[in-house]
């Protein structure tokens, strides 16, 4: 394993990542290892065609359709695929339900595992050391930093996604939303509520 252990510190330029990736991309293109149009398509797919609105559609469907919710909790991967979302970093999904008794919250302490098909690419704070270090040891303190207070008699359940399961939180449907359509409900569902670092406020 010693052969991996070269940190290869650049001191003088070229050290900045923009230059480094340009050099790498140009070499790989020249050697025919990557394709320029494919890169554009990949970037567009994850910048514009996926994101938390996918997860929000799943949540809203579960709120209005008890049979769907049952399937979602029993077979997350299959039920999410029914809505058209699947693939990289969501190959094996587990959906965990928030209730009055349990509040779920998701972290990846070892890297930055996150359910891309339903939530898109993770925000910086999810990938950074402060959240990853404290989510498992002080979840209520972390939640307080997000302005979330969980009742003393509710269990805060932290999921460390250290293996290949990816976790999506099914948030509690807020009070006062009985007459709302599935689309209106989806519009209320926030990214953080599906990570477990947010709760959805009841409509005013």
């Amino acid at each position: 394993m010693a052969k991996h252990d070269h940190t290869h510190e650049h001191t003088a330029p070229p050290s900045d990542p923009a230059l480094r990736v340009k050099a790498l991309e140009s070499l790989l293109l020249e050697k025919g290892v990557i394709d320029a149009e494919a890169l554009d398509e990949i970037i567009d797919t994850y910048e514009n065609k996926t994101g938390p609105r996918n997860g929000a559609a799943v949540v809203a469907r579960a709120w209005v359709d008890p049979d769907y919710k049952k399937r979602l909790l029993e077979d997350g991967t299959g039920a999410i695929a029914e809505m058209g979302f699947s693939g990289i970093q969501g190959e094996d999904m587990l959906v965990v339900e928030n209730t009055a008794e349990v509040h779920n919250m998701v972290v990846c302490t070892l890297c930055s595992c996150y359910p891309w098909p339903t939530l898109g690419l993770p925000p910086v704070w999810y990938k950074a050391a402060p959240y990853r270090s404290r989510a498992v040891s002080d979840p209520r303190g972390v939640l307080a930093e997000f302005g979330v207070e969980i009742a003393d008699d509710t269990e805060v359940r932290v999921w460390d996604s250290n293996a290949e399961l990816r976790y999506l939180v099914l948030p509690v449907r807020p009070e006062g939303t009985d007459g709302m359509s599935e689309d209106e409900l989806a519009a209320m569902v926030t990214r953080d509520s599906m990570i477990g670092t947010g709760v959805i406020q009841a409509p005013k």
């Binding site: 991309e25 790989l28 990557i34 494919a38 990949i42 994850y46």
Partner: peptide, 8 residues
């Protein structure tokens, strides 16, 4: 660009 190169 990094994201594209890595996924490709």
């Amino acid at each position: 660009r990094v994201f594209g190169v890595v996924i490709a």
